[in-house]
């Protein structure tokens, strides 16, 4: 298939990777899913530019990414507000834009959230490895040569699929998530919640935790009140499988939210974040705060269905345009 050079990377910023929905079916061989950390913003970016919803996008972190368009391209930027500009003019997020050759996109500094998604009509063209185009940073494969983007990289795309009527399409403002400095995360207790005292679980659900600088695609380490463990259990367990959103509590009693680059672990897990709240976790940066509240598995599944209904209305919205 014909490929076209879409962007030159002038500055890679703090961390920019290519991510799609993730790599599934290989966890039993130690291969984690990877993929876009904020599935909501990622999906909307693709829908805006007329892509399949799982197409590979750029995931830019905090600040600094600077791209030069090498041809006419249709893009959309969603997710965290990293103050994107087009040729030094502020660029509206959550809508489509047509860029022409020589246009410069720059993510100047983070305003709210942490990660922005840039989708291009036609998708970014990188090889599929084990069925996915996602970058697995610590495994050094997938995405763009298995690594974060560097200055001078050329990003390729397939020719645009987007009809011109999509230009100027906006995602309705009332549907755009707001990233707060303090995120409220629903959690489902288990599987080792019984390793903690009642007081410990109470501490976990009633305290505000701060995001530390140890915060990457593997997980988010939090600081705050120590979660008390029962005296007759150990800090660690026999290693077992992990899911994105699992909250590990190591010996120091401070929680760590696991993200998409780990498959097994040997720390006790007090709870896991509701999967539809992972989008909020993805938008946390060092210094932000989180609070947890406990819900049942039935409530969680109800919330997942509600999210699915919302996505259906989004898709209807895009199809009507």
């Amino acid at each position: 298939m014909e490929r076209v050079a879409a962007f030159e990377v002038l500055e890679p910023g703090i961390l920019t990777t290519i991510q799609d929905v993730g790599r599934y079916g290989f966890s039993q061989s130690g291969v984690p899913p990877s993929g876009a950390l904020d599935p909501f913003s990622f999906t909307i970016a693709n829908l805006l530019v007329g892509n399949r919803e799982g197409e590979a996008c750029l995931e830019a972190t905090i600040m600094g990414l600077k791209l030069k368009a090498l041809r006419e391209v249709v893009i959309a930027i969603t997710g965290g507000d990293l103050s994107p500009t087009l040729n030094r003019e502020s660029l509206e997020m959550w809508r489509t834009h047509l860029l022409v050759e020589g246009d410069i996109i720059h993510f100047k500094r983070v305003r709210t959230g942490c990660r922005a998604y840039l989708a291009i009509s036609g998708g970014f063209l990188v090889p599929k490895i084990m069925g996915s185009q996602s970058t697995y940073l610590s495994g050094k494969f997938g995405g763009f040569e298995g690594r974060a983007l560097k200055r001078g990289d050329t990003l390729y795309s397939l020719p645009t699929q987007s009809p011109l009527t999509k230009l100027g399409l906006r995602f309705p403002a009332e549907w755009i998530p707001q990233w707060e400095k303090e995120a409220f995360l629903a959690v489902i207790p288990g599987p080792q919640d019984h390793h903690f005292t009642q007081q410990g679980f109470q501490t976990f659900c009633s305290s505000s935790y701060q995001v530390t600088p140890q915060c990457d695609r593997m997980g988010v380490r939090l600081d705050g009140p120590k979660i008390e463990r029962r005296s007759d259990v150990e800090d660690s367990i026999i290693s077992e499988g992990l899911i994105s959103g699992a909250i590990q509590v190591p010996g120091d009693g401070k929680p760590i939210i696991i993200l998409t680059e780990l498959v097994t672990g040997g720390y006790t897990k007090i709870a896991s974040v509701l999967s539809t709240d992972l989008t909020k976790v993805a938008q946390l940066k060092p210094g932000d705060r989180v609070r947890f509240f406990s819900i049942s598995i039935e409530e969680a599944h109800q919330l997942i269905w509600e999210q699915e209904e919302r996505f259906r209305s989004f898709k209807d919205f895009f199809e009507q345009r």
Partner: peptide, 22 residues
């Protein structure tokens, strides 16, 4: 069923509740 992760003494089954209710 999206993933099965067999480990020493447990098996983690990752499923999609929209397709397969618990």
């Amino acid at each position: 069923i999206v993933e099965t992760i067999p480990t020493y003494r447990s098996l983690l089954i990752i499923y999609n509740p929209l397709i397969l209710p618990l």
